[in-house]
């Protein structure tokens, strides 16, 4: 039994595949590629695979990781074998031996693209930067027991804002991956609450990098 990890992208139409469906998709893709993966016991054996940080529906990623145990040694050729049998938009980047615990992921980097159909409002970039440097950005968040106030500032390691063309703002965000993990779309919720006049018409979000405690690539 050898523990492996693959790093993959999820983009385009594949961003609408839910976490559960993605697990099923990989289960079948392994089967198609003829990879012998360790299965669960019982009546209905399933491949034992895990995806450490489920991506919210509708978000793209360049850095997803999936862990599994293979019954036989694998080499780099697995990448192309798997890519030949994946649905559109899921692209395997590399195969690694799984030597680091996924719990060492402490931060995640995201790129948010805020889209304004009628052009970015004057001073929006500055206003957003100012808001998140205040250290106290509180939003209402749904919890198991109704709703609660939640200060998202401690979850933000860095947030840089730049304008891209006339209609878009680009936010480069490093957010906490654990206790608690920050859903980057809450940044947009916060803009909607504090700066409603510069709330974007639509936001695209891409997870670009998993980082460890030292902010080094995981």
């Amino acid at each position: 039994m050898i523990k492996y990890r693959i790093v993959f992208e999820k983009k385009g139409r594949a961003k609408y595949i839910s976490h559960l469906d993605l697990m099923r998709t990989f289960q079948r893709a392994f089967q198609r590629a003829g990879v012998k993966v360790r299965h669960t016991e019982g009546f209905n054996p399933r491949a034992r695979i895990s995806i450490a940080h489920p991506l919210p529906l509708g978000m793209e990623s360049r850095c997803e990781i999936l862990d599994f145990e293979a019954l036989e040694p694998l080499d780099e050729s697995l990448v192309s074998r798997l890519n030949a049998v994946m649905p559109e938009g899921i692209v395997i980047r590399e195969l690694r031996e799984n030597t680091r615990k996924a719990s060492e992921i402490a931060w995640k980097r995201y790129n948010l693209r805020l889209i304004y159909d009628t052009g970015v409002p004057q001073g929006a970039a500055e206003a957003i930067a100012r808001l998140f440097s205040s250290g106290n950005v509180v939003i209402r968040k749904k919890t198991k027991r109704g709703e609660a106030d939640f200060n998202i500032s401690p979850c933000i390691n860095s947030l840089n804002v730049a304008q891209d063309g006339n209609d878009e703002l680009l936010l480069d965000l490093v957010a906490s991956a654990q206790s608690p993990s920050l859903n980057p779309m809450l940044i947009v919720d916060a803009i909607g609450k504090y700066l409603p006049e510069i709330s974007p018409d639509f936001t695209r979000c891409v997870r670009v990098e998993m980082l460890d405690e030292e902010l080094k690539p995981f």
């Binding site: 139409r13 609408y16 469906d21 998709t25 079948r28 893709a29 198609r32 994946m86 559109e88």
Partner: peptide
């Protein structure tokens, strides 16, 4: 996902 296509 049922409205996007892109399946294997």
């Amino acid at each position: 996902a049922r409205y996007t296509g892109g399946e294997y």
